[in-house]
C-alpha cells in the first residue's frame, strides 16, 4: 500500500450546491480538479462556511463561486479582487477566496491583481492558468505565450506570457505558490497554506483546457495534458533543473509571515484617529 495521508475520507459534497451538478465545465477540464482541491483544503482546515466569501469574475473559472455553498459573489470581468477588497476591509473576519482565470487575473484584471498584492490584503487568489480564454471559445490569453495557436491567433501568437509567480512576487504578494492539476494532493496542501496565510496569497495552478488550448495546439486529451504537467514541472530547486532549465518549478516561492497585512494596518489607523491625532 502506498504511503498516503489521504486514507481519511473527504466529504466535499457538504460544501456543494449539488442541484447545479453536473457542472458546466467540459469533460476533462482542470477547473473541476481545482474546485475539488479547494474544497478538500477547506475541509481539512475546518473553516466555517459562513465565514467564507467566494468572489469571482467572469469566465470558466468564475463559475466556481456558484457551485459552493459559501457566501458567493459572482461579479464582473476582472474586478473580483476589487470587490473582494471591499468585502475584506469592511469585515476582516471573513475569509476571501478568489478563483481567477487568465483574463480575470492578468488581462482585464491585471491592475487589481498587482494592487491587491501591493497592499498585502488578506485574500487568497487562485489563478487557474489554462493558457486560453475558454468561455468565449479559445482566444489567446496573457498566459498563452509565444508561438501558440488560438482562435484569435490562427497564424500563432506573437505575444509573450506573464510569469504569474514572478509578477505576484514583484508586486508584493506575501505568499506565492505554484502547482498543477496533476499534482492534486500538492494543490490541497498549497491552498491550505495560502488560506491560512495572513496576507495576499497567490496559488497558480496549471489547469488543462483540452477543448480549446489542447485541441488547437495538439496537446492530446486531458490525461495527456496532465502527463505534460508531470513531465515539464519539478519541485523548486530540483537537480533536474541543471540538465533542463526549461523545466517549470512548483512549490512555495514566497512565504513572508512578517509583511504587515492591510486590514491590521488600517486597524492601527483607527486607533490613531480615535485618539485625535492626525
Amino acid at each position: 500500500m502506498p504511503k498516503t495521508k489521504y486514507d481519511k475520507e473527504y466529504n466535499v459534497k457538504q460544501y456543494l450546491r449539488e442541484r447545479f451538478f453536473p457542472h458546466i465545465w467540459c469533460p476533462g477540464c482542470g477547473h473541476g480538479i481545482v474546485l475539488g482541491s479547494l474544497l478538500r483544503a477547506v475541509e481539512e482546515l475546518g473553516l466555517d462556511p459562513t465565514e467564507i466569501v467566494m468572489t469571482s469574475g467572469i469566465g470558466c473559472s468564475a463559475r466556481i463561486s456558484g457551485y459552493v455553498n459559501f457566501h458567493s459573489l459572482h461579479t464582473i470581468h476582472g474586478r473580483a479582487l476589487a470587490f473582494a477588497t471591499g468585502v475584506k476591509l469592511s469585515t476582516p473576519k471573513l475569509n476571501l477566496i478568489v478563483p481567477m482565470g487568465d483574463g480575470d487575473a492578468l488581462a482585464i484584471g491585471g491592475n487589481h491583481f498587482i494592487h491587491a498584492a501591493r497592499r498585502n490584503i488578506d485574500i487568497t487568489a487562485i489563478v487557474m492558468n489554462n493558457r486560453i480564454y475558454g468561455m468565449t471559445g479559445g482566444q489567446f490569453s496573457p498566459l498563452t505565450g509565444y508561438g501558440q495557436k488560438a482562435t484569435t491567433a490562427p497564424y500563432s501568437t506573437i505575444d509573450n506570457e506573464f510569469d504569474v509567480v514572478k509578477l505576484a512576487t514583484a508586486a508584493g504578494a506575501s505568499f506565492v505558490a505554484r502547482s498543477t492539476t496533476f499534482h492534486a494532493t500538492e494543490c490541497i496542501d498549497l491552498i491550505k497554506k495560502a488560506i491560512s496565510h495572513k496576507g495576499f496569497s497567490v496559488v497558480e495552478i496549471f489547469s488543462q483546457c483540452p477543448t480549446h488550448y489542447g485541441r488547437k495546439n495538439k496537446k492530446g486529451d486531458a490525461s495527456n495534458m496532465m502527463e505534460l504537467y508531470k513531465k515539464t514541472t519539478v519541485p523548486i530547486g530540483s537537480k533536474k533543473l541543471e540538465q533542463d532549465p526549461s523545466l517549470i518549478e512548483r512549490g512555495i516561492f514566497v512565504d513572508n509571515k512578517e509583511a504587515p497585512e492591510y486590514c491590521d494596518e488600517y486597524e492601527k489607523i483607527i486607533q490613531t484617529a480615535m485618539k485625535g491625532r492626525a
Binding site: 489521504y6 486514507d7 475520507e9 475539488g36 492534486a184
Partner: peptide, 19 residues
C-alpha cells in the same frame, strides 16, 4: 490500493473511494 488519486483528480467530483 485506495491511493484515492482517482477521487482527487476527478474533474467532475464524481468519484469517492470509500474505505
Amino acid at each position: 490500493i485506495y491511493c484515492k488519486l482517482c477521487e482527487l483528480r476527478c474533474p467532475d467530483l464524481a468519484i469517492e473511494v470509500k474505505i
